[in-house]
Design a protein around this nucleic acid. Sequence first.
RNA 1: GGGCGGUUAGCUCAGUUGGUAGAGCACCGGCUUUACACGCCGGCUGUCACAGGUUCGAGCCCUGUACCGCCCACCA
Length: 856
Amino acid sequence: MPVPEKPALEGLEDALSAKWERDGTYRFDRSKPRDQIYSIDTPPPTVSGSLHVGHVFSYTHTDIVARFQRMRGKEVFYPMGWDDNGLPTERRVQNYFGVRCDPSLPYDPSFVAPEKPEKQPISVSRPNFIELCVKLTVEDEKVFEHLWRYLGLSVDWSMTYATIAPPAQRVSQMMFLRLLQKKLAYQVEAPTLWDVDFRTAVAQAELEDREQPGAYHRIHFAKRDPSTSLGTGGSGFVAIETTRPELIPACVALVAHPDDARYQPLFGTEVVTPIFGVRVPVLAHALADPEKGSGIAMICTFGDTTDVVWWRELKLPVRAIVQPNGTLGRVTWGAQGWETIDAARAQQAYDQLAGLSAKKAQARIVELLRESGDLQGEPKPITHNVKFYEKGDRPLEIITSRQWFIKTIDHRDQFIQRGREIAWHPEYMQARYENWVNGLNGDWCVSRQRFFGVPFPVWYPLRADGTTDHSQPLVPAESRLPLDPSTDVPDGYRADQRGKPGGFIADPDVMDTWATSSVSPQLVSQWETDADIFARTFPMDLRPQAHDIIRTWLFSSVVRAHFENQSVPWTHAAISGWVLDPDRKKMSKSKGNVVTPLGLLQEYGSDGVRYWAARGGPGVDTAFDVGQMKIGRKLAMKVLNVSKFVLAGEQPAGAVTEALDRGMLQNLAGLVDDATAELEDYEYAKALAKVESFFWDFCDNYVEAAKSRRYGDFGVEAAASASTAMRLALSVLLRLLAPYLSFVCEEVWSWSNTDSVHRSAWPTRAELIAVSGTDHAAQRSVFHLTEALNAIRKAKTDQKVSVGTPVKEVIYVAGDDAARSLALVERDLKAACRADGLVLKAGEPRVEITLKPAGV
RNA sequence: GGGCGGUUAGCUCAGUUGGUAGAGCACCGGCUUUACACGCCGGCUGUCACAGGUUCGAGCCCUGUACCGCCCACCA
């Protein structure tokens, strides 16, 4: 392809991404042996959101690494996934189609969603619901793919996966069943963190703290003399302070520190809860903090995670009042129900709370306590941190329910050990991982009471009385996976036995999002699907991801690979930073400062945006800065223009004989070494800085100095030396820049090559030295020429003439070494400063310029 | 309360094993120069967060402090 007259960046993205697709430039060749393959476990973006500039930032980093590895001779295994699984998608589908999922319904193959959502949501089976999810997300995925192609990700687009699609479900279910078989997964009925709006359990990893207003309520519990009968005994009161007075009916004990002299006399005695008249013990536990509140705490089932610890360790009973929907449930007090010393009063009071949300119940009970005189003083407002589900709107409750868990606590040391087998980029991210593993305080709860997710492939037998026997789950053969237990039938049963005594019932839950996404390495590597690919790609080479999900995605992936494959899932983890807005805050939609990525790519060019992203090193939070994108665009423009100069026109061929040319090529060999070493170490930003700096120097100094010679001013051989050296240097520089400025480099490469620059060999020192030879004197002459040029340009500028102004004479006096060195490149220097005469002398440094007489 | 990172020019950031503080942008000035005005040349800009210490010498090493960010904690 000839060099265009007026080269331009516009349109390269569309033209070249189409060409790459046609040519299969990034198609994975599965015939390569493992040691020639570089496999990447790409994060699947959530499709029900939209891609933002943070995605562009981090996915570019991965692409740079992929392109470098490919040019180094590795066959890059680079699939792309879509995370269409989980709550955000589910919510959107509900609203979009006006449906609700009812897992108890059978699949209806003829179901068609209404054009417009009806007022009253339509109930559909889980398989129907999932069909709608898939239908909606397919459109999102097209938009995402277009953006990624436009950005220039060198993904093999024939290898995409969706986290809700059958292959992903199959791997998730199969790996779950194997954990179950090894007793590494288990289910138990236990207090679990619960979101009352989503009505699902959530995991420790999905929590976040939020500052909330609250108030300390100082409340009297009557001391009770055990020697008297049922009365309160009248021997005084104990005051506790609580932020959750509505949980008083759920109180099961008071607890204070064993060394706390104030409460030591009470240990082993009982007190009576206000209003409800429940006798509860006063106990000692080291977790109680004498400094907090009154130093004695009310234990409820369950107000917070500390309550759970106390409840478990002190073997207390359960009095649960908060229901899964966040309201207080009905309770019968007295003989048939909960024990109390005054059933009538307890019932009368509690009936005013039942059915209310926790918040409303609190307001009501405060009134009741005030009336009864058990509230001491007024509530004291405070702000405190409260646990929320990261996607939730109301504080988490702790509710007892049956959930699936994967064992983690007993294996912490092994997970730490696996972490040490991974090379972290940057290294300090490993500390965050270990910090998290060491801080684990419970096994990983993997079940969610949702619909759009991977179902647990499990059923339970129903006893003759119709109750469920959870102790004997029915599991399918692996060959039946994936399946949906709400529609599929366990072996040995008939469909009409579903829900009948003596029949079976499906496990209603789905796996949490990290339980399914944590198997992405096995999924993309075709574990248990294609043993050949798996052997060639697993353990994978790279997991790129953001630092905020080390505790979730990264950790859970290590857990799964450790249990299933007895290995790490990958050998490198590249952790990218965040994009910060100008206020140094993480860019987010809620702040209204998110710019649409496609608009940016169109305005600054994909290469410009890639350049900005590439400057943010591994793990480094980086400011959103269109200024850097403009600079990237200018760099791309410069590549275009200097390439036009180097490649255009007929040029003599021949050996590189001139000192300037040889020195430049040797310096370039040094650059190749440096950039290669940095990139091998995942330091793509440092490599770019070095290449960029060399490139500008090449343009401004070398090309300027060699230009006149290349035009033939000093004969054909001298011109051939310049031409050959320039072409080689350009070829090397294009290859060094190709991972970053993927479009412009490909465009320019096509002017003198038939293959793709992205499939060309990474440059080496050897190919340069073979042409330039090694000659330190030549290298020094390049250095001194640049210095001389700068000094002479300054002198011209001082005289207010243009650098291109021809002058009569230039006298350049410099040190011995410089003078000797410059003699090697005297012709080039003289031509570059447009002087009729050039005098080089050794001595005290000085530049003297004699202008031509005016009018000549 | 614990852990990890950061603090360098107006802005965005580099600063290798300690050896006279750098780049780009912005700003100012000069250039129609036959690859490029999406360009070229030049100039200005710093108590390297603060306080101690080690050293002939500290942006870099050590101790402490402050502020910013992230992660974690048994937040009654």
